[in-house]
Simulated assay, not measured.
Amino acid sequence: MSLYKLISPKSLADLVRKETSRRVVPVDSTWYMPNTKKDGKQEFLDVERIANAVYFDIDGVKDHSSPYPHMLPDLATFNAGMSQLGITSSDILVVYDRIGNFSAPRCAWTLAVFGHQPVYLLNNFIAYKQQGLPLDTSKRTAVSPFQPSTYESNVDLTSQEVVSYEDMLKLVESGELALKYNVFDARALPRFTGEASEPRPGLPSGHVPGTQPLPYSAVLSEGCFEDSPEKMQKRLQDYLESANCTLDSRKPTIAMCGTGVSGVIIKTALELAGVKDVKLYDGSWTEWAMRADPKYLAKGRK
């Protein structure tokens, strides 16, 4: 079960209009792959945003001791980041990104991992714009319209939600990864097979032995998640059958990707489809390719 819920553009507009006891705070978390040379934070400040939105920087609120991008922070770092944005524990948070559903699931998941409730994922910003709902197009100089707060969460679900490199390595070395888990990689298929380069210079492509491809684009329809479990199940099943991949409901599941962003997209899709016990390998392929013995960098489909 996902830690957060989907909300449609219309339902968001209704929520903003009807909610009188708590703030509804849109959270822009737009992040682009490094090879695009685009800056989500600068677009937030210069281009447009939902009114009263804050910008949550997944490359700012992270584990600063890790050599890998935007890894989950510790609780103190998370609380400090939320305080700087002026978020309070009573706020209703609605996360979006300007791409559609790309980095927003990662942000919504992070907020919920550290106990914020409720958290919604807007499904999605492109549809919001197409429906002519209100936008703020003025230039901003700050990532939040609010004064700093004192945000204090004592919840950390990291151990329940995340699989470590050490856990993955033990399973691969023993040959038990595919026996004990469904493991899906959200990267584009040519990166999974090793036929295309990784967007990060010097990083080899390929995959962890025992994983299966589940490109994040396969679980979205025009950037949106399906709006019912049945539709989400069908979308997943159609892809898995076409790709000759399997999902064993008796096994727990691990999702991964390049750096833990699009892995949350497929994690969300699986959970929306009713798949239970889905964890994220946060370091994903970047950590694996940098740390694992080259003999564990697989090529091809399997």
Score class of each variant (00 low, 15 high):
L85Y: 06
G81C: 10
S29E: 07
A108L: 06
A80N: 14
T36R: 14
K251S: 08
L171H: 06
K41E: 15
S66W: 02
G274L: 04
T36Y: 08
A218E: 15
L15K: 13
D59Q: 14
G210Q: 00
E48C: 06
T77K: 13
G263V: 01
V54K: 03
T36A: 10
D46R: 05
F125N: 04
K279T: 11
L169N: 08
V27W: 00
V16K: 14
S2I: 03
V162T: 13
S249G: 11
P148A: 10
P199Q: 04
V155M: 11
S29C: 13
Y120R: 04
L240E: 05
D282A: 11
T137N: 12
M33S: 10
D185A: 02
G206K: 00
Y296A: 04
F44H: 04
K234Q: 13
D57N: 15
C107Y: 00
A142S: 15
L72A: 10
S11F: 11
V264E: 08
T150S: 15
L214T: 01
S21G: 12
A80Q: 15
F114G: 00
F225A: 03
T158Y: 02
K180H: 10
L111W: 01
L177M: 07
K302F: 09
S11Y: 11
S90L: 12
I99N: 09
V275L: 03
L280Y: 06
R106V: 01
M82W: 09
V162P: 02
R250F: 12
G300V: 07
M1I: 11
L6T: 05
L133V: 04
A269R: 00
D293T: 11
K231Q: 13
E176Q: 15
D14L: 15
T246A: 14
L3N: 06
P134D: 05
G263E: 02
S138Y: 07
A127L: 14
G300R: 10
L270Q: 01
Q84A: 15
K276F: 05
S89Q: 15
L171C: 03
K279Y: 02
M71C: 11
I58A: 05
Q212W: 01
D248T: 09
A273S: 11
T36D: 03
T268P: 03
F225M: 00
S11T: 12
P73Y: 01
T268G: 03
P69W: 02
F78I: 03
E48H: 07
V155H: 11
P73R: 04
Y281C: 00
Y4P: 01
L189E: 14
T193H: 06
Q84S: 15
L12K: 05
Y4T: 05
G132Y: 07
L157C: 12
R140A: 14
R49I: 02
T141A: 13
E19I: 12
G263S: 09
